[in-house]
Simulated scan of single mutants.
Amino acid sequence: MSDLSELRFFRTPAHPCSYLEGQQAATLFVDPQVRLNAALYSELSLLGFRRSGDYLYRPHCEACHACLPARVRVADFQPRRRQKRILQRNSDLIVRQEPSRYTREFYRLYSLYIRERHGDGDMYPPSEEQFSSFLTCAWTDTRFYCFRDPATKKLLAVAVTDALKDGLSAVYTFFDPAAAERGLGVNALLWQIEECRRLGLPYLYLGYWISECRKMSYKSQYRPLELLINDEWQEFHPPTPPGRRSPIA
């Protein structure tokens, strides 16, 4: 393991949080001058760091600790009934790993997705420079898992995924909003879990889970889910609403 104590980090100034209204956020970045590589990335992922473009970062807010790194324990994952239906619905798709790069085809789908699904977010409006600086990376193994219609070969979804020592990291998924009935985002995540299983990797890293953010609530549907709490990975047990049984499917 590398001597992480020798790394330098930079903290951004406080800025409005993208996930919790009224909160101020700050981010810790690994010094951009450090020569990053896949091995260091894997070590820092264990400490809750994520990749955005060529940068590694982690939330570092003074008054809030709501962002908890999350990962799926692959060996014990069993799809729930709804997830099985989505897998069946998309079993016809052709899935191929393609190089992580800018192409017009990738960007058209990405731009459509951002405009249709995230027009009110901080990623709007999309741009070609944004696509490359956010999704691609020069120093690690980034894969574009592409999901295509079997008849037309039309690109329907792309799961941007990084290879780590102990798993895969689901960086971002974008898909055709016109094919909403397929559940392409859910299917891509389930597919990545199965890809971890095929590769003999124990974890799929999902980024951050925030209990009070509805945008993040979907992550609790992939169990067993582990959260990094007080520098220790712990299994997450969602509370069961009063008067209801704990869901089993």
Results as ranks from 00 to 15, higher is better:
Pro241Cys: 07
Ile114Asn: 12
Leu28Tyr: 06
Tyr19Lys: 00
Asp176Cys: 11
Asp166Leu: 07
Pro202Phe: 04
Thr161Glu: 02
Thr240Asn: 04
Ser169His: 00
Ile114Glu: 13
Phe131Thr: 13
Arg82Cys: 01
Tyr145Val: 03
Ala170Tyr: 07
Arg50Leu: 11
Arg108Asp: 13
Pro13Gln: 02
Phe77Gly: 11
Asp92Trp: 10
Arg115Tyr: 07
Ala39Met: 06
Phe134Met: 11
Glu235Lys: 14
Ser2Lys: 02
Asp76Leu: 02
Arg96Cys: 10
Leu87Asp: 11
Glu6Ala: 05
Arg101Pro: 15
Gln24Asp: 01
Trp233His: 06
Trp209Ala: 10
Lys165Gly: 15
Met123His: 08
Val171Ser: 01
Gln88Arg: 15
Arg50Pro: 09
Phe174Gln: 04
Ala151Leu: 15
Ser18Pro: 14
Pro69Ala: 02
Pro241Val: 00
Pro99Cys: 09
Lys154Arg: 15
Ser2Val: 09
Glu226Gln: 14
Asp122His: 06
Ile193Asn: 03
Phe77Arg: 06
Leu206Asn: 00
Gly207Met: 10
Tyr218Met: 15
Ser132Cys: 13
Arg182Cys: 15
Leu47Ile: 08
Val34Phe: 07
Ala38His: 04
Trp233Asp: 06
Arg197Ile: 07
Ile210Phe: 04
Phe144Ile: 14
Tyr19Gln: 00
Arg115Pro: 03
Gln33Cys: 13
Gln221Leu: 11
Ser18Asn: 11
Leu135Gly: 04
Arg71Leu: 08
Asp231Ile: 06
Leu206Ser: 06
Asp3Gly: 02
Met1Gly: 10
Phe29Arg: 11
Gly119Met: 06
Val74Arg: 00
Arg80Cys: 14
Pro177Tyr: 09
Tyr145Glu: 13
Ser42Pro: 13
Met123Lys: 00
Glu195Met: 13
Arg11Gly: 08
Phe147Pro: 03
Arg50Tyr: 11
Glu129Val: 14
Asp149His: 08
Ile94Thr: 10
Phe134Lys: 03
Glu98Gly: 10
Thr12Lys: 10
His65Leu: 04
Phe174Tyr: 15
Tyr113Asn: 00
Asp162Phe: 01
Gln192Glu: 11
Cys61Phe: 06
Leu20Gly: 05
Gln97Leu: 09
Glu43Gly: 01
Ala163Lys: 01
Trp209Met: 05
Tyr218Gln: 15
Ala14Lys: 05
Ala159Pro: 12
Lys153Cys: 15
Leu225Arg: 02
Gln83Pro: 03
Leu201Val: 04
Pro99Ile: 06
Ala26Arg: 09
Gln221Glu: 14
Pro239Ser: 04
Phe134Cys: 03
Leu190Ala: 03
Asp122Met: 12
Ser127His: 00
Arg101Ala: 12
Ile210Pro: 06
Leu109Met: 04
Gln130Ile: 03
Asn90Leu: 01
Arg214Lys: 08
Arg198Lys: 04
Val95Met: 02
Pro239Trp: 05
Val30Lys: 05
Asp3Thr: 03
Ile229Val: 13
Pro13Cys: 04
Leu40Phe: 05
Leu7Phe: 13
Thr12Cys: 12
Val30Asn: 00
Leu109Phe: 01
Tyr203Phe: 12
His65Arg: 06
Asn90Glu: 08
Ala25His: 10
Ile86Arg: 00
Met216Phe: 12
Gly121Gln: 05
Leu36Ala: 01
Gln33Val: 07
Leu56Cys: 07
Arg50Trp: 10
Thr161Pro: 00
